[in-house]
């Protein structure tokens, strides 16, 4: 049921230029945008020892989460709004109901996409944080990696 509804949304939007550009931007920028901090914040103000805390376990979870969140709202948030409003302006929402969807199904299909995108973004967050952490932390072990793991839930 949920899989069918996501397939439906995929069929609808896979060739839409707005959706393609926004997802490309998100996928391209999300893992690395935090690295711009290296250029911009050469000297961080006192409470932080140096900009390395951005990339180090366990604090990378917080900073990657913070930076990623902005991208999520700009790219995925806007995309979701677009996916709902464009259906209204193309009158395809109306047509979907005429074609036999119930209103409940229609909104559930949008909700499924939302949940699906949140899960994908979270998976990317986990992977990218681990990669960043591993490449920037000297001497890490499993414990220190998972030290801040409630951040995953917070991000989601």
């Amino acid at each position: 049921m949920m899989k069918e509804l996501i397939t439906l949304e995929w069929l609808k939007f896979r060739k839409n230029s707005v959706v393609i550009v926004l997802s490309a931007l998100f996928v391209g920028l999300f893992p690395f945008i935090i690295l711009t901090g290296k250029k911009v914040f050469n000297n961080v103000p006192p409470p932080l020892p140096s900009s390395i805390v951005f990339y180090e376990f366990p604090t990378v979870w917080d900073y990657q989460g913070y930076a990623g969140n902005w991208l999520v709202s700009f790219c995925l948030g806007f995309m979701m709004v677009y996916m709902v409003t464009s259906e209204v302006s193309n009158r395809t929402q109306r047509q979907a109901i005429i074609n036999g969807m119930t209103r409940k199904e229609y909104w559930f299909s949008k909700l499924s996409v939302l949940i699906f995108m949140a899960l994908v973004a979270t998976a990317m967050y986990v992977v990218s944080s681990i990669v960043l952490g591993v490449t920037h932390t000297e001497g890490y072990d499993f414990e220190i990696i998972w030290d801040n793991n409630n951040a995953i839930i917070r991000f989601l």
Partner: peptide, 15 residues
């Protein structure tokens, strides 16, 4: 409604 084929006013499709 899945047993009904209908057009109302304008043809509505994804442009």
């Amino acid at each position: 409604r899945t047993r009904i084929g209908a057009i109302l006013e304008t043809p509505n499709f994804y442009p």
